[in-house]
Amino acid sequence: MNYIAELNAFDRWLETNYLPALSELLWRKMVALFNRCGWAEWISVDNQRLMGLIQVKREATFIDYRNKLVEAGLIEYQKGKKGSPNRYKLISLSEGKNNNTFTSEVQTEVNPVVQSVVNPVVQSVVNPVVNPVVKTVDINKLNQTKQNKTNDTPYSPPKGDAPEPVPRETVQYKKIADYWNSVCTELPKVQALSDNRKKAVRARVKEHGEETVLRVIALVKQSDFLCGRTGNNWNASFDWVMKPANFVKVLEGNYVNKAPAPPSPPGTARRLDDLTDNPFLKIAMEEEMKNE
């Protein structure tokens, strides 16, 4: 059966036939159940479920509306045994006697020919493979099976609550470490990139950019003080340079080599203030210069 075809055929049937509104609603709900059950020939469903579908509280009232469908030839009904739900069979309107005359005539002429040719071939291929189709479906068992499948399905968070993807690492740690080793040859080499070192490098790159980090390393190489060339028995390490305060000091030129004072031009008198701050030494030097 076809769900849409049955609904359309039912609407055409109502043009010339009468049903109470709740009997009409009950038929539509039962068609939906048959559709969910794969159009089984018979389905089993209890009165309470059908009463809930059409919002009827008294069972006697429900039975009256159901009997209207039976009397109209729209459904067949079999009372269930004790402890078992009733069974129902849907009478197709789109495929049965209520269909239009043209369709009925075509089926009358064509069906016998098609069945005589096709059915033997199809049955010989399908029957050995396919198990017999179960004609009766218990709607209560079907719902229970769906519920079990739902319970077995692993929980997946809604799209709005899904965790954000971890951004791909873009800091080129090895490039920066290799540049330090190749430029600052007088200083301790970077032998390993520990998590703490990566954290410090990542912070400096985020704050100043990769090019600035490489420029600071070049400034370290140019600094006599940082490279230990001033005889102070100390030199800078990679970790020391990557500390935020030290990094900024190097970047701002605090450790740039100081240019030597230019020599005095020939014949220029030396200022005593440039030679010493000792007042007694100044007096002695002034006397010496007078005697020259």
Rank of each mutant, 00 (worst) to 15 (best):
I283W: 07
T212L: 10
P154W: 00
N233A: 12
W180F: 02
S264G: 02
T145S: 11
V125C: 12
Q123L: 10
Q191G: 11
V171T: 10
D138F: 02
A177F: 06
T153H: 03
G231F: 01
V130T: 04
T170Q: 12
L281S: 11
N98R: 06
Y88Q: 01
A203T: 04
L272F: 12
K135H: 06
Y18H: 14
R215T: 10
T108H: 14
V130R: 12
V171Y: 01
V45G: 04
L93K: 03
Y173H: 14
S84C: 07
K29C: 15
N140L: 15
D273M: 07
V122G: 05
G228R: 01
W13P: 10
F238D: 01
R204T: 01
K81I: 06
N235C: 14
L93Y: 02
G228W: 02
P279S: 05
P266D: 02
I75P: 08
N140I: 12
D11Q: 08
A5D: 13
L26Y: 05
N232K: 15
K249R: 07
V117T: 03
D138Y: 00
E6A: 01
T268K: 13
E287C: 07
I43L: 00
D277T: 11
E71P: 05
N47H: 12
V190C: 06
V166G: 03
V121E: 09
E207H: 05
T276L: 06
I283D: 15
A192R: 13
K79A: 13
I283V: 11
M1V: 09
Q48K: 09
